[in-house]
Design a protein around this nucleic acid. Sequence first.
DNA 1: CGCTATTATACTCTAATTGAGCATAAGGAC
DNA 2: GTCCTTATGCTCAATTAGAGTATAATAGCG
Lengths: 322, 322
Amino acid sequence: MAPDKQESRVRVDLTAVVISVDDRAPHVLTVEQEPRPALPYGPLRSDHRTLQAGLRSWVEKQTGYRLGYVEQLYTFGDRTTTGAEAAEHFAHRRVSIAYLALVPVPGERAPIQGSWRPWYDLLPWEDRRDGDPPALASVLERLSDWIGTGRNRDPARAERVRLAFATEGAAWDEERALERYELLYEAGLVSEAAVDAGEEPTAGLAPVPGVAMTSDHRRIVATAVSRLRAKIKYRPVLFELMPPAFTLSELQRTAEALSGVPLHKQNFRRLVASQGLVEETGGVAVRTGGRPAKLVRFRKDVMLERPAPGVRLTASRRASYP
Amino acid sequence: MAPDKQESRVRVDLTAVVISVDDRAPHVLTVEQEPRPALPYGPLRSDHRTLQAGLRSWVEKQTGYRLGYVEQLYTFGDRTTTGAEAAEHFAHRRVSIAYLALVPVPGERAPIQGSWRPWYDLLPWEDRRDGDPPALASVLERLSDWIGTGRNRDPARAERVRLAFATEGAAWDEERALERYELLYEAGLVSEAAVDAGEEPTAGLAPVPGVAMTSDHRRIVATAVSRLRAKIKYRPVLFELMPPAFTLSELQRTAEALSGVPLHKQNFRRLVASQGLVEETGGVAVRTGGRPAKLVRFRKDVMLERPAPGVRLTASRRASYP
DNA sequence: CGCTATTATACTCTAATTGAGCATAAGGAC
DNA sequence: GTCCTTATGCTCAATTAGAGTATAATAGCG
């Protein structure tokens, strides 16, 4: 039984998924923590004026980064421990409030502590910009074991896999990143699942490719990926990741890096233009390897004009960078 | 200074916005609490297996309702108290995790405790199904005072009002319900603002029409309204509010009740049909006042077929019920 | 210098989708 | 039956989305 009365106070953690995009690769800010990398986090303190202020303060303290755009992601608080451990953990359950933060491409400025980790190292099956990644084939193979064959085949599992991973003609929905991670977790194919079940990480099935993280942090990253992929379509958050001036191709590469799918170049430009999302700075970018591109900047006024400005991307059938 | 060390444990509340729709009017489940109505809520307890389970348990205990669909809304945790009160409240700040829950039309079954309150009593300016409601005119009048005139006119305020409330030709975006409430709060035009500032509810400006709630509960309701209005467009949550069999008109009235805008009848049907959201039960509804309508039921299979099934409503220029 | 590779940018064309409205059907009330 | 009301089927134009072609402007290289 819990030591104090059941209506106990709990420790509340603030956890940050800080994202930046460096040309082709989106990165997540991680702090190294044995044995596995973690997201920056820290407990809510009574001197934090707001939850967001608390988060900013922790990230700044732990990594040296001052955050720009921040939005709340989700609050996690389920007891994941089971069996014998449960009683012990009863009294000090944790609630963690996760935030998504975006920072412009950091360039040379490295974080004081921690490091930028490519998010497709964590979730390698999510990158379909150049067609199906090798990790996806591996994941699907493992999942087909989970589905079973013959008399042991579970049709409900098969259907879930079909939808989440777009097998058998279903369309790939890049926003289902969280669903895919959770499916793999449930199938016991990520090593966090074994750890949460109280086993050694090496016990059970060998995990699919992808770097595991502390606690439920990889799940939180997957939540951030899903949210961000959805959000760039109807809010101009993409620009939070860009430098003050950039080319349309750079913008497109950023959108593709996040969404993990190739986009149709001409239509992307038409969309950005028709929404009035950018204006020319007058400058041009050299060193493009071809015709110089005009530099543009974000038009902050769109926020005042359009109800839902964003980059309503639809994947092109073929890769844009063949 | 806080009595214990700053890294204190906090009380976590679970708060529920329970919605049902009765033909024309959406309702929120409230518990009466002096002096103002409140949402059902209670502290997270150590015997709650998950956050959601804790929420369900509180709502059931307080109102007798067993919830169906539940999703997390937002976590609030900012200290709103200022000045002298702050020091006192320092140690026991609260974090409240708000959930949105949907229950089918309750019919005669009244809640054991609490009552269903029409949400447009709380946010009367949000109902534009029959054109501009009287409350909206009143709100706009008060806001124009806030903007100021002549040399005192604040163009930034004017622009925010224009966008949020769709004055001067801007398009009404029903999803901006939260933004509208927050604008009114900031302008001091809802009585919660005066209370939070430590004044008597009657002090300051007279509030705009609309029933005030305890603490920040009306803000939470506005959050729920915004979320729900957005969500019905890409997820079939509408059906969580419907009885097992219903007519397309009933479905449309529910969508209109939530979104607060009239919809084009024929296009609504085309949309629902083309998405394969429903199938005929074979029965017909009598007592429609005209030609009997076919009864339909939700096709659960759509979840398995479409990436984002929902009712992508666009308001018709004219009311559908003239 | 002219050719080629490479990227940027401007247009075109077609197929869907959307917004709006007209027309017809099938009940009840009288 | 007529009239009123709601349900349902269908058309049409305007807009948007998906895909592709054509042309422009650079660098590198013989």
